[in-house]
């Protein structure tokens, strides 16, 4: 399988985990970002979310996932990395992003996985749209400023 990509199909974390498995690795860390059933509005009031929808600039998003994953892998000395993000409608409780990292010891795998999800939220061109009982809106995200 391809270690990095964008798909409109449900994510298969078992496949990612199998991809990063390696005899040199003593740890595999996986992360799933899942869609939540409520979202805070501008006044910090939680509103129930009916459905979530992701749009991506597909070709650039796939490139960014690869760069982020491979840079983090090199920085932490991890063994293998795989990361996919989903687009289209994602039902509540389902995964929108899946990451798997293997490394010789667990500390590097945890740190590498965390760096990857943090950087995805900063610099992968993907946008979340939430539908509430009373309307829908794009979620305000990270604009590149420090």
């Amino acid at each position: 399988m391809e270690p990095y990509g964008i798909t409109d199909q449900p994510l298969d974390v078992a496949a990612l985990s199998a991809f990063v498995a390696d005899p040199a690795a003593g740890a595999i860390v996986t992360f799933l970002g899942t869609s939540r059933s409520s979202s805070a509005d501008a006044t910090n009031v939680e509103r129930p979310v009916e459905t979530l929808w992701y749009e991506a600039y597909g070709p650039m998003a796939a490139k960014r996932l690869r760069v982020i994953g491979e840079e983090a892998r090199a920085r932490h000395g991890a063994t293998r990395v795989a990361c996919w993000h989903r687009t289209g409608e994602v039902a509540i409780g389902e995964a929108s992003v899946a990451i798997a990292v293997s490394s010789p010891h667990r500390a590097e795998a945890f740190a590498c996985c965390r760096d990857i999800i943090d950087e995805i939220k900063r610099s992968v061109p993907i946008w979340k749209r939430e539908r509430f009982t009373d309307g829908e809106e794009w979620v305000e995200g990270y604009d590149g400023s420090e």
Binding site: I120, S123, V124, P125, I126, W127, W138, G141
Partner: peptide, 10 residues
């Protein structure tokens, strides 16, 4: 040139 609003993936 792509016009990219603040991203909210993950």
């Amino acid at each position: 040139v792509a016009v990219l609003p603040p991203v909210s993936g993950g």
